[in-house]
Simulated assay, not measured.
Amino acid sequence: MSLPAPPVLRSEVQALIFDCDGTLADTFAAHYRTFREALVPYKVEMTAAFYAARLGLSRRQLLAALTEETGMPVDDEDLRVRTPAMFLGHAAAIRAIPFSENLVRLHHGRLKLAVASAAQRPMVMASLGAIGLTDFFESIVTIEDTGVGKPAPDLFLKAATNLRVAPGLCHVFEDSDQGIEAAHRAGMTVTDIRPYYQSDPAEW
């Protein structure tokens, strides 16, 4: 199957910034299985529909929404500590997203490339390693670098700072409404990759 044509970038763009989960890598199955496993001691169930409706949220934001939905509190710090190792156990489910992988390989060496993800660094590095793209990026920014998830612009602004490129000269690739809002708030143009790729919750 042929890949969709890459988007036409503004001539002044100097850097591309990619979200990780759902943009570079289909990690939804791995993350969903990790959360379900981590929530067992709390006797709280997270459905695929609940998770799919909140893609792009940080772990803290997701758990807050789950507590609001179920009335059952979940200790975010507990999951922060336990989930990275669990995620590695589900890494075999991670797949590259062809549209974005093609863009990375096409522009590597031509433009500066970065990742800006609200996930924890061990998970992001595991995901990039699973799809063989770790070494393509000059900067990899994760939630540990800013402490603030999307739709705040901090992750994207940190990536631009690391690349030494003005925000207005960066173009973002995202797969969530929160991420797209964050890119706009950072003063960057953005491409929504969802028309080019959809993960199937039935396979999670």
Rank of each mutant, 00 (worst) to 15 (best):
E138T: 10
F137H: 05
P153T: 07
L169N: 15
G179A: 08
P84K: 01
E174L: 01
S117V: 14
F173V: 11
R110E: 12
A119N: 15
H171D: 05
A130L: 06
K150G: 02
G179W: 07
V81S: 01
I94V: 12
N102Q: 15
V74C: 01
S139E: 15
G89W: 04
G89P: 10
V74Y: 04
P84S: 02
K112T: 11
V81P: 00
R95W: 02
L155H: 02
G147H: 00
N102R: 15
R95E: 13
F99H: 14
L106Y: 03
D154T: 00
H108W: 11
G147R: 03
R110S: 12
E174C: 06
D175C: 08
L113Y: 12
S176N: 02
N162T: 03
C170W: 02
S117C: 10
M125S: 12
M123A: 10
A152P: 00
G132L: 11
F137V: 09
R95A: 07
R121K: 12
I143H: 07
F136Q: 15
L111G: 11
D76C: 12
D145S: 10
A159S: 03
P122Q: 09
R164I: 05
E181A: 15
L169M: 12
V115R: 07
A119I: 06
L103Q: 12
P98A: 13
K112W: 08
L163W: 10
I131C: 10
V172R: 00
L103D: 08
I140K: 00
P122N: 10
Q120H: 04
T83C: 07
A116I: 00
S127H: 03
E101D: 11
E181H: 09
I180Q: 07
P98M: 09
T146Y: 00
L128F: 07
G147C: 01
T161P: 01
N102A: 15
F156P: 05
D75K: 05
E181R: 14
V124G: 09
V115Y: 05
V74R: 04
Q120L: 13
L111V: 13
